[in-house]
Design a protein around this nucleic acid. Sequence first.
DNA 1: CACATTATGATAACGATATTCATAATTAAA
DNA 2: TTTAATTATGAATATCGTTATCATAATGTG
Lengths: 143, 143
Amino acid sequence: MKRTGKKIFFDFISKNGLKRSRQRELILDAFLSTDRHMSIEELYLKLRARHPDIGYSTVYRTMRLLVESGIAREFHFGDGQTRFEHLPGGERNDHLVCTRCNAITQFENETIEKLQGEIAASHGFLIETHKLKLYGLCAGCRA
Amino acid sequence: MKRTGKKIFFDFISKNGLKRSRQRELILDAFLSTDRHMSIEELYLKLRARHPDIGYSTVYRTMRLLVESGIAREFHFGDGQTRFEHLPGGERNDHLVCTRCNAITQFENETIEKLQGEIAASHGFLIETHKLKLYGLCAGCRA
DNA sequence: CACATTATGATAACGATATTCATAATTAAA
DNA sequence: TTTAATTATGAATATCGTTATCATAATGTG
Ligand SMILES: [Mn+2]
Ligand SMILES: [Mn+2]
Ligand SMILES: [Zn+2]
Ligand SMILES: [Zn+2]
């Protein structure tokens, strides 16, 4: 039985004495219904199409709550914009980032994960999270 | 016989029809004489102690030139500020970053490097550069 | 030296994000 | 279901790192 993103978020809301709102639910839905790596601006534009009354600030504020509640995670690629991805379904820390078309592909490699742990241990370091980005040209852009 | 950072930079300057200046040399010296990961602000403050006439803009512009000339490299950790490190001595892409005291330790692992290449190849991806950050608590902060 | 060109520093502009504030919506109590 | 306290909202403004503008100064080549 899996706790859906929605449940997690609204549990977080009530646990912290916050209140539900139409906007928060709309933003959450928009975020969950889209593939990873949306920026605030992209979410805002997507929402505004059907709900022109939602404010930019509310998107910012709600995304901050999604991060605090643990169902979203911030990502910083090269451009100035913060992007978000969902955590349910597992952390996605490892990406191929195309420097020409900005395409982003996720990957994961068990051996690398294990080696990261060994390296940290050898420094007495306790890993909380990690990021591995390979920047370059995607197959399409090389052609 | 190694080309010093200074030589590389001023070669770059003349090769591109630019001009030497007292400020550029001071900024370069300040950068080279400090350990990695200085931000613009930190460099500016360090310089201003002895040379109160140097402008913020010039530090920005000069750091951009250092990056273009290949002796410096931008880094974006979590905070809003861009930081720079020297390249002479090899690229340093892999770091342990302490989320409590912000200590940064560099590491490198041959196997991981090799696996990165294999992963990229399997996606038809051409790597230009990469970053691997392990975030967590350093030995000191765990104690 | 002359003079064309680039560099400088102060200031203003910029874009992403955060904060303020008056008003609206939510929630729990009565 | 009303009430009243509390939180949320959207518009506007502020903030912060960074970049652009511009008048003046320094550089360097002939
Ligand atoms: Mn990973
Ligand atoms: Mn590496
Ligand atoms: Zn591409
Ligand atoms: Zn630490």
